[in-house]
């Protein structure tokens, strides 16, 4: 197995910039991402825009492992990106996240 592109780790924020069970927006290189901290204190990242319309998910509500879009309440599991039903049917892209000391690093291919 070969990997063609190495993952680049980008510093997104400090670990305590995000409250537990919350989300923030992170923009990098012309793209926007959403970075989550779950109730069990794990960190995750997805594309920043809803797959229904171009709406920033970071303005939405995190409940457990669900991010709910602030526009029409479409729901995704932010750990897997899975769309949980109407009105969203296209999954969200997810990205790996690493914690380095007190920093949250976002893995981009």
């Amino acid at each position: 197995m070969t990997t063609t592109t190495a993952t680049q780790w980008i510093e997104a924020c400090a670990a305590d910039d995000i409250d537990e069970e919350d989300v923030i927006r992170f923009d990098h290189d012309g793209r926007t991402y959403a970075i989550y901290r779950s109730p069990d204190d794990e960190y995750y990242a997805t594309d920043g825009l809803c797959t229904h319309e171009q709406i920033h998910l970071a303005d939405g509500l995190v409940m457990d492992h669900i991010i709910e879009c602030p526009k029409h309440n479409g729901r995704f599991d932010y750990r897997t990106g899975q769309a949980k039903g109407a009105p969203v049917c296209v999954n969200l892209k997810t990205y790996p996240v690493r914690i380095d000391g007190d920093k949250v690093l976002l893995g981009l291919a």
Binding site: L61, P70, K71
Partner: peptide, 11 residues
């Protein structure tokens, strides 16, 4: 703006 109100209305 949607981003300023949506979360609070949902809560």
């Amino acid at each position: 703006p949607n981003g300023k109100i949506a979360r609070d209305v949902r809560l």
